[in-house]
């Protein structure tokens, strides 16, 4: 068996690639550290000097302005120098291989790579390739994982609900294509959540999803009953034209989160969404703007969580 590539010899965090194989104490360390970083964003000087003199390369082989921006802000609030590369428009278009690109950037004395790639496993490949003083953060790879999103979701849930041991959490929508769902299910299990539900049409569920330790509902009214947390997934436009779904309107009618459906959940339920959301497709505007939604706090917490991940990686213990 291969050693866990995410951990160094002392059991500390070396890379953040996936929630799988991430020990509970490291998850807790990340969440606790993040809570100390939340306040920094409200100060006059929104910076701490932890990563002063370090170079963080944002390597986005797949476009995502929002995720890239939050990583950029997080690194800058830690005083790192940030270099953004949209690689699909540069060297790979000229035929350079992924690892050649990495070697070139490492030769520019990179300390950390934040990697987004359409291919599942690309960040693992990079992590195995680089020297041990370089750290890799997976910012979303294919359908595989998006660990910082899973962690910021867990942070948000803990902020509002404090304890996972009595929670019912429903994840609604396109689970099949969602790396967010996979990472969230992983972290919810690590934190000991007893009741994790996925709600979706059969065509948007991966085969054998029950093996992840979740209960499957095809009927949203049944699935939302008495849940504490609702996580809506984004329905990507390109999926709506394919054979999996009839139309966006049809999806909204059967799976969209409306006030009526929200009323089935617990009265203090929170509504989350990884963004960017499609109003009128997976979520109705009154819900998105309503008192149960914590979608914007998720964004704020996301910066603190990404700061915590980078700070712990660079600290190297």
């Amino acid at each position: 068996m291969q050693a866990n590539p995410q951990l160094n010899k002392r059991g500390g965090l070396q890379h953040l690639l996936s929630i799988d194989g991430l020990p509970r104490d490291i998850v807790l360390h990340i969440l606790d550290t993040a809570s100390s970083f939340v306040g920094i964003s409200e100060r006059e000087v929104k910076k701490v000097p932890l990563l002063r003199g370090k170079s963080v390369f944002n390597l986005f082989f797949e476009n995502s302005t929002r995720t890239r921006t939050t990583f950029e802000i997080a690194a800058k609030r830690l005083s790192a120098d940030v270099i953004n590369l949209n690689v699909d428009t540069s060297s790979t278009a000229k035929g350079e291989s992924l690892l050649d690109t990495i070697d070139n950037l490492a030769a520019m004395n990179a300390d950390m790579f934040v990697v987004r790639h359409a291919q599942s496993g690309a960040p693992h490949l990079i992590a195995r390739h680089v020297q041990s003083h370089i750290h890799v953060v997976n910012a979303g790879d294919g359908r595989h994982a998006h660990p910082t999103q899973g962690l910021l979701d867990a942070y948000t849930i803990r902020h509002y609900k404090h304890d996972f041991s009595h929670l019912a959490v429903a994840i609604v929508g396109d689970v099949l294509h969602s790396r967010v769902a996979r990472s969230l299910i992983g972290v919810l299990r690590t934190m000991g959540t007893p009741d994790i539900r996925v709600i979706a049409p059969q065509t948007l569920l991966p085969a054998g999803v029950e093996q992840l330790g979740v209960t499957v509902f095809n009927d949203i009214a049944q699935g939302l009953r008495d849940v504490d947390v609702i996580v809506m997934l984004r329905l990507q436009n390109e999926r709506m034209r394919g054979p999996l779904l009839p139309s966006a309107q049809e999806f909204f009618k059967t799976y969209g989160l409306t006030d009526e459906r929200l009323a089935l959940a617990r009265p203090d339920a929170i509504v989350m969404h990884p963004g960017p959301m499609n109003r009128g497709v997976e979520i109705d505007s009154p819900v998105a703007d309503g008192g149960h939604a914590v979608i914007l706090p998720q964004v704020t917490f996301g910066i603190a969580v990404r700061m915590a991940v980078m700070a712990i990686l660079a600290g190297g213990v």
Partner: peptide, 15 residues
């Protein structure tokens, strides 16, 4: 977050 020995000793468990 302001310690000068951060790169050699990392972050302590509870900040």
């Amino acid at each position: 977050f302001y310690r000068d020995d951060y790169s050699s000793s990392g972050l302590k468990a509870s900040v």
